[in-house]
């Protein structure tokens, strides 16, 4: 965590909401990509983790 961060009652409180939003966007994009890849795998091969 950033040395400039504030700790309030054991919870991490971001010091800047803008970069938090950017990180959230990056996580969302990765998650959406994972969901899309999982959907395509299941749609095409009827399985996600196994080799047909």
């Amino acid at each position: 965590m950033s040395p400039n961060g504030k700790t309030r009652g054991g919870k991490v409180i971001p010091s800047n909401n803008l970069y938090t939003v950017i990180l959230g966007l990056a996580c969302g994009v990765v998650l959406a990509t994972a969901v899309f890849v999982a959907y395509m795998c299941y749609f095409q091969y009827r399985t996600i983790f196994e080799i047909p």
Binding site: N4, Y19, I22, L23, V29, T33, V37
Partner: peptide, 29 residues
């Protein structure tokens, strides 16, 4: 928050979006 952290966050976000785009494009095609 240090400037380096900010730069890393931005770079991480951009690289994530770029890589996810490549993955989506590849999987779709």
């Amino acid at each position: 928050m240090s400037t380096l952290t900010k730069i890393l966050i931005v770079l991480l976000t951009i690289s994530s979006i770029f890589l996810c785009g490549i993955v989506v494009t590849y999987v779709a095609n």
